[in-house]
């Protein structure tokens, strides 16, 4: 292999990077802007949820349980149940929101959660209108 001086010295041009401002996103201090349509945690509009359990049926991870709620917010909710998601199983594929007939189940862009107890990852979707 013949020795080429250019190829030995050209890498030093990379050092010009030190004059640029670092590109890092400093997460805990600076939050990056939320992307609309990001698949994060679930939200469920209880005033339109009809308790049909389509989301439970389509979920291949069996992450969705239909649980009974005390007071039914939607008179059309025949089963009296709403979905609860196990984030130890969920894969954020959003098939459950695709099959939701009244479009009450949605994903919000919030998606960060760390915890030291595995049992806390059973998630009751927040009641947010979409």
């Amino acid at each position: 292999m013949k020795f080429e001086l250019k190829n030995s010295l050209a890498p030093l041009s990379a050092l010009s990077k030190i004059f640029e401002h670092p590109q890092t996103l400093c997460y805990p201090e600076v939050k990056s802007e939320t992307v609309s349509g990001y698949r994060g945690f679930h939200i469920n509009d209880l005033s339109t949820c009809i308790g049909c359990a389509n989301c439970q049926d389509v979920c291949m991870n069996e992450a969705i349980d239909m649980i009974a709620i005390d007071k039914d917010k939607n008179p059309k909710n025949n089963s009296g149940c709403i979905p609860r998601i196990d984030y130890g199983r969920c894969c954020w594929c959003s098939l459950c929101t695709d099959v939701c007939p009244p479009d009450s189940l949605k994903l919000e862009s919030e998606c960060i959660w760390a915890d030291d107890d595995a049992n806390r990852f059973l998630y009751q979707p927040k009641d947010k209108p979409c």
């Binding site: 292999m1 020795f3 080429e4 250019k6 190829n7 030995s8 050209a10 890498p11 041009s13 990379a14």
Partner: peptide, 13 residues
């Protein structure tokens, strides 16, 4: 820039 730093870098060659 990658060409200069990596692919044409004599030490990588």
């Amino acid at each position: 820039a990658y060409d200069r730093l990596f692919f044409d870098n004599a030490s990588f060659q």
